[in-house]
Design a protein around this nucleic acid. Structure first.
Lengths: 189, 189
DNA sequence: ATTGCTACGCAACAGATTGTTGCATTTCTT
DNA sequence: AAGAAATGCAACAATCTGTTGCGTAGCAAT
């Protein structure tokens, strides 16, 4: 009843290679053939694991995206919490493959529901983390309890991600501090 | 010395078809063969125009993106100008192919300098338009003349584009009004 | 350790696709 | 009307995707 260790081994090595291909050459080059060449795993085996390219792409997307499931720090003050969280998120974007793969998944999401789901899940997770921070700030009385925060959350998340993923501009601490300052000052109004 | 009308005709019909393919089936399906099937233009001719798939993709990207070169309305008040401009931009995103193609170009930009350039140009244009609006607001004395607006511009642009292109959420007038309100209130601080 | 099951690699295969080329035809320009 | 140039066609090699059958090797359970 246990899972055959060969299955696991093949899956792991294949997907890791797939991830690298995705990073270095883009979605268009992510094929069974390419993975086979890179790993030595035979094409037929790869096809048995993922019946077509779309399945292979989806599996790779999913593997790369796996949300760290951030448990945000909510001790306050608001600015500190936000800065901390966004630092983590942006750090992940800079230091893990996800930063370079995300645009590919976003593009795929236009025609591929599985890819869309990966993005949606990912973003939902981020939004929830920021929301938790705002909620905590409300509890502490830092911001008005009836302050509508949906839009603030959207700003907090969208701007840095857009800056990195679309504009391809750097995200250093100074910039991030200024950004957090904007969001917090809106919240405190 | 005049350009052969056949060249123009082929180029136009081909790229229009290419654009549709890009829209409906994604970058992966945008090939000389697909365009040929859709237009009746022979593959050899297409290859003479664009020597490989990358060239074809780039040409399609460029064609679809062509920035309308927005001349923003700067009569004031700030909120009205911003709302007007963003309405136009978001309308374009909803009603033209660009809204659905942009993610594909963004993804391609990761590995393709030409695609990167398309995005950069496009965004530069948008940033400039918003900047003009802020400058006019300064001249009218609506906001402090020494107010640093770079970050505000970034927020104004990033959030709606991110919402549409990445989150795939609707951009109606109510949402946009709330967004403009945020940005303007930051500017007025 | 033996038995049965299952994953793997190999090789061959069909079909589709990319990109190239030579030649005839058509259509522009001057 | 004549030369230049673009197109269409057809054939082509090379590659790629996806499938299949078969032999081998590794795993689990008794």
């Amino acid at each position: 009843m246990k899972e055959d260790p060969r299955l696991i081994a093949t899956r792991e090595t294949a997907l890791e290679a797939a991830q690298n291909i995705l990073l270095e050459q883009g979605v268009l080059s992510l094929t069974h053939g390419a993975v086979s060449k890179l790993t030595g795993i035979s094409r037929s085996t790869l096809y048995r694991h993922w019946p077509d390219v779309e399945a292979l792409r989806d599996a790779t997307f999913k593997r790369v995206s796996t949300p760290p499931n951030i448990a945000p720090q909510t001790n306050g003050p608001l600015r500190a919490d936000l800065f901390w969280l966004l630092s983590i998120l942006m750090g992940a974007l800079n230091e893990t493959p996800w930063g370079r793969v995300a645009p590919q998944v976003i593009a795929a999401a236009a025609t591929d529901p599985d890819a869309r789901l990966v993005i949606t899940d990912f973003m939902k997770d981020r939004f929830a983390a920021v929301e938790a921070i705002f909620d905590a700030a409300k509890e502490r009385g830092e911001i008005a309890p009836d302050r509508a925060v949906q839009h603030l959350i959207e700003i907090a998340i969208s701007v840095p991600y857009f800056r990195k993923l679309v504009l391809d501009k750097p995200l250093n601490d100074d910039w991030l501090r200024a950004h957090v300052d904007m969001v917090a000052s809106l919240a405190e109004q």
